[in-house]
Amino acid sequence: MEVFDQILQTGFFAALIRVATPLACATIGEMFSERAGVLNLGIEGIMLLGAMSGFTVAYFSGSLWLGMAAAAASGIVFAALMGLLTVTLGLSQHVSGLGVTMLCSGISFYCYRLIFGQPSQPPNVQPFESVALPGLAAIPFLGPVLFNHVVLVYLVFALVPLAAWLLYRTPWGLALRTVGENPQAAASAGVPVAWMRYQALMISGALFGIGGAYFSLAQFNAFTFGVISGRGWVCIALVVLGRWDPWRCALAALLFGAVDALQLRLQSSGAIDLPYQLFLMLPFLLTVVAMAMLSRNARAPASLLVPYRREER
């Protein structure tokens, strides 16, 4: 079983973690906004904008972390626009989200072309480097798999329990969940519904931006127009698969990472002679299949997609 030998190497699991990290980051962001009742379809465009703005700022400032901050900030700005449209004005979340995605994609392409022109060699930065955690990295198997990555990976490790704690163990999380389930009840308990939704959206925007910048500053060392190519949409599906729970969302991202890392291995090993496009298709196909299978158990926040107007009821 050569194939299994290929799979069970530590390199495979380390690759899995690398692939899953930006997706877990964005998926947890989307989970926050959906938990508050807003489907943020701006994700695809905001991730692209994060990749672009993060790269641009890192390129000119020489600081990768400043790039990350810019990516998060640009994400917050456009998530706030999403809030203006869907929360303040109560417009269709589907169409608003698509509008934000189109706008952000357009801005990303436009600004990149404006700043860098059309050079034959795309400009690049020195990307984030792996940091082996002292002690932990020496553990056999687990060390190289979990503890020899760029710092962002560790931050996302920490993000999952932090998100779970915020959501389930704090008054803020309770308020957020109530806003997504029953905004009328939340409002009568004195929770500022609109402000909670804005907060959730801005958290999502920041995490989308960071997730996007991971691609241009850690995974690769440059910005390309196809750098996100549908991965944002995958995160929308991962939230459904993860049933709006931080731990399960992270698990769903890991599962996606496993499929993706597997396809890279199978492709390069030549063990299976299939067009590589079929492997690229796999996550999208699996998402549809999984949603059909899980849909009976999946229960979205009750007020997802429903705008809240104080005058009603």
Binding site: S96, T101, L103, G106
Partner: peptide, 8 residues
């Protein structure tokens, strides 16, 4: 950009 902005 015009496309996205006009949708919004």
């Amino acid at each position: 950009i015009i496309q996205g902005a006009s949708l919004v």
